[in-house]
Every structure is written in C-alpha cells, then in structure tokens.
Design a protein around this nucleic acid. Structure first.
Lengths: 108, 108
DNA sequence: ACATTTCGTAAGTCATCACTTACCGTAAGT
DNA sequence: ACTTACGGTAAGTGATGACTTACGAAATGT
C-alpha cells in the first residue's frame, strides 16, 4: 500500500523538485531550499512527506541533516507499475487487434 | 513531460480506482461509475484527465463510449521511473557503504 | 417523429493541501 | 556560558481540485 504514498508524494511539483535535487547527491535541508523558490520550512515539510513514502531518508550531520534518496519507495512504485504494465499491454493488444469485432447494435 | 500528467492523474484515489477498473477490461462510463461511490459525471471528468495523461483511450460504441487502458502514458511513467531507479541505487550504495566517511566537524 | 439511453460540459460548493511567518530545540564554535 | 547556525513544528491563509446537480448533444429503439 506504500506505493500510494509514493504516488501522491511525487505528484506535487515542488516535492518532485526536491526529489530530483537529491538525485544529484545528498544535501541538507538548507541546500535544497537554496535551489528552490520556496522557504526552508516548506522544504522540511516536503522531506517529511517523502520520507513517509519511503522515497528519501536522512542522517544527522552535526546540527545539519543530510537527506538522500531511498530506493525502497521507488522500488514499490516500480513493482506496482510493472504489474500494471504487463496487464495493460495484453489488454491493449486485444483492443487494437479486433476493432471491428465490437458488438454492433444494428445492421450486423 | 507527459509523465507529470500521468503522475498527477494517478495520485487521486478515485481516478486510480477508475484506472484499476479498466484493468479488468474495457468498460463504458456508466459501467465504471456503477462500481464506484461517485456520480457518473465525476467518472467522466476523471476519464478526461486520464486520457489527457495518455493513460486511457476511448472509442465510440453507439451512444456509449468504451474506455480502455492506453500503455503510452504508463510507458512514459515507467521510463522516467527507471531512469531514476538506476541513479538512486548507485547513490544509495555510496551512502550506506561509507557512513563513517562523512565529514566530521570536530575530533577528526 | 418521439422517447430513451448514454455521455460530456457548465456552474457552484467544499475540503484538502502547499505555503508563509513565528517559535523552540539542538549542536557546534568562541 | 553565550552566540550562531540549522531544522522541525504550529498556526493561519489562499488556491487548487474533486464532487454535486442541471442541462444539452448525439445515437438507438419503437
């Protein structure tokens, strides 16, 4: 069920920007906030949501706190998506292969 | 950039329910709405968003309209996620392999 | 031609949530 | 001990968006 959190977390543009910033390596809250047009508390709240979704994790570094990407949440999301993917491909094939076979109402 | 639409589309619970309903095969708007606790227009609006994201498509069937899952949007989302995945794994390895190598402030 | 079914859109309402400022706790430097 | 730097949380505000009802358009059946 955690893929739901990951999905909703990554839906927000700012939160996605935070996540993509961390993709270039670990960073502190202030460092992340410095590259974004929002305040530092906003970033802190976003990181909390991302952590809850298993998308990031953080370790203390003195008074600072360094965050980095956690593959767990990403993995769950990937599995959910893959499971969907196979199903969708097969269903789509059935759809495009017989577009004329759909039930007609009159003049059969 | 279409993965953004797919992400925001799948973030909503009801819209995800619509999408997962279509996973069990094509269905009309009314059929989808019958299995959900929301009105038919709501489902129609959700299908519009899903279509815009490339996640579903629809074909007319008389007065009805049958919707089915479109792999395109799902594929874009998958690619974006995969591209993230490799990066995240490597970065995470670097993180957990040297947790003691982080810069200490005093008493080095 | 008329009634019925099915769907999409418009307009309005309500809740959710992203953001801000203010404040407090904690860690390190002097 | 005091000051400075860094983060997390609380409280309040504004905007986005998900839902409803009402209406109109298009296709089928009698």
């Amino acid at each position: 069920m955690a893929y739901v959190n990951a999905l909703t977390a990554l839906a927000d543009p700012t939160r996605r920007a935070v996540f993509e910033r961390l993709r270039r390596g670990p960073a502190s809250v202030g460092e992340v906030a410095a590259g974004l047009p929002v305040s530092r508390p906003a970033v802190s709240q976003h990181l909390k949501a991302l952590k809850l979704a298993g998308l990031v994790d953080g370790r203390p570094d003195g008074a600072r706190r360094v965050y980095y990407i956690d593959p767990n949440g990403l993995g769950e999301l990937r599995r959910w998506l893959d499971q969907f993917w196979e199903n969708a491909l097969e269903a789509f094939k059935n759809e495009v292969e017989k577009p004329k076979t759909v039930k007609r109402r009159k003049n059969p």
